[in-house]
């Protein structure tokens, strides 16, 4: 499917094969170089995130030794404290600790949890799958809902405008914990169709949490997609298509839909981040295991290695998805490639 504003395709097919070859190679080179730069940039941001989080966690009040020995109320002797300090490398200079933290991070070692006495990587490894399933399903659901909404409401008219305005409100004002609770009230308490908790494996337990995460996101994506679609429907190529006698339905399905999807692709990184952050609340509402709940529990007891681990992990996911969505956007939108 060629994008309507891209009329270079015709000139390419006329050009001699040799020119086409060099041109294609040059283009590939540019793409590879750009991709390389983006990957380097992403790695840099990830390093900065890990660094910032590490030093921010040094600001947590209290001696980490107390946390290691089971809370501030412990009555360990000074010798035990000193031994614990040495065992965990807390007696070394801060920069040395930072260096060893970075070194371990590269190999995937996130240290040990104060509370659970387990490697953080292991704790998070067990929980990450649950959260990712939730977030990816919610993202897909939000996409479908938003595209449907955009297609329907871009036709214009009073009702569509009203729905568009309503979307603004839903996406900005409805907190996940209320929406989730309402869904539980309706579908678990009143109708008793679906379980109120999501601990057990199985698809039934996933429906309500996924909807809770997806609906506000769909409201936001729907707004952006609708906007982009309206712009496309009023642009010169759409006018010329109409002049050729193309029907509105075909125009919106064949051409404008692609324009509507573009910002959705570009926003996927941000959406993924906000979904994982929303998972903290949704996993609590539906008593579902996952890194969101792990994070919350660690924040409450100030289990610094776990908080640090979750933060770095989520940032890494965010950065990777943003990188992928940037590249996907470039792939889906030839106009971005021209630069």
């Amino acid at each position: 499917m060629s994008l309507d504003t891209d009329n270079r395709t015709t000139s390419h097919s006329i050009a001699a094969p040799a020119t086409r070859d060099t041109e294609a190679r040059a283009r590939l080179k540019t793409v590879l170089r750009l991709t390389g730069f983006r990957i380097l940039g992403a790695a840099g941001v990830l390093w900065a995130v890990a660094t910032l989080a590490f030093f921010a966690m040094r600001l947590v009040p209290g001696d980490p030794v107390d946390a290691l020995l089971g809370g501030p109320g412990n009555n360990a002797t000074e010798e035990v404290r000193q031994a614990t300090r040495e065992l965990n490398g807390l007696d070394r200079p801060l920069l040395v600790q930072y260096g060893s933290y970075l070194g371990k991070l590269v190999t995937g070692d996130l240290g040990d949890s104060y509370q659970l006495r387990e490697p953080v990587a292991q704790v998070l490894g067990e929980q990450l799958g649950n959260t990712l399933v939730l977030a990816v399903l919610a993202l897909a659901t939000a996409w479908v809902l938003a595209l449907a909404l955009a297609l329907w409401s871009a036709r214009g008219g009073k009702v569509a405008t009203l729905v568009g305005n309503l979307l603004e409100v839903v996406s900005a004002a409805v907190p996940h914990f209320w929406l989730g609770s309402l869904l539980i009230l309706v579908f678990s308490v009143s109708l008793q169709w679906l379980p109120a908790t999501s601990g057990a494996p199985g698809i039934e337990g996933l429906i309500l949490p996924v909807l809770t995460l997806a609906i506000p996101l769909a409201g936001f994506l729907g707004q952006v997609m609708r906007e982009s679609m309206l712009t496309a429907m009023n642009s010169p190529f759409a006018i010329s298509s109409r002049a050729r006698g193309e029907s509105e339905a075909s125009l919106s399905l064949r051409h404008a839909l692609r324009h509507a999807a573009l910002p959705g692709i570009g926003l996927s990184g941000w959406a993924m981040g906000s979904l994982i952050s929303g998972a903290v609340v949704v996993e609590t509402v539906f008593a579902r295991p996952g890194i969101g709940r792990t994070l919350l529990q660690s924040v409450l007891v100030r289990d610094v290695p776990v908080v640090l681990g979750v933060v770095v992990l989520v940032a890494a996911i965010y950065i990777i998805v943003t990188l992928l969505s940037d590249l996907a956007e470039r792939w889906a939108d030839p106009r971005l490639r021209a630069a």
Binding site: V45, V49, A56, G278
Partner: peptide
Amino acid sequence: RFLEVLFAFPGLLLALLVITI
């Protein structure tokens, strides 16, 4: 660049980090 780094702590995550401290 600093803002870009902060954006990698999406949504409530930055708030949770501050509350941990």
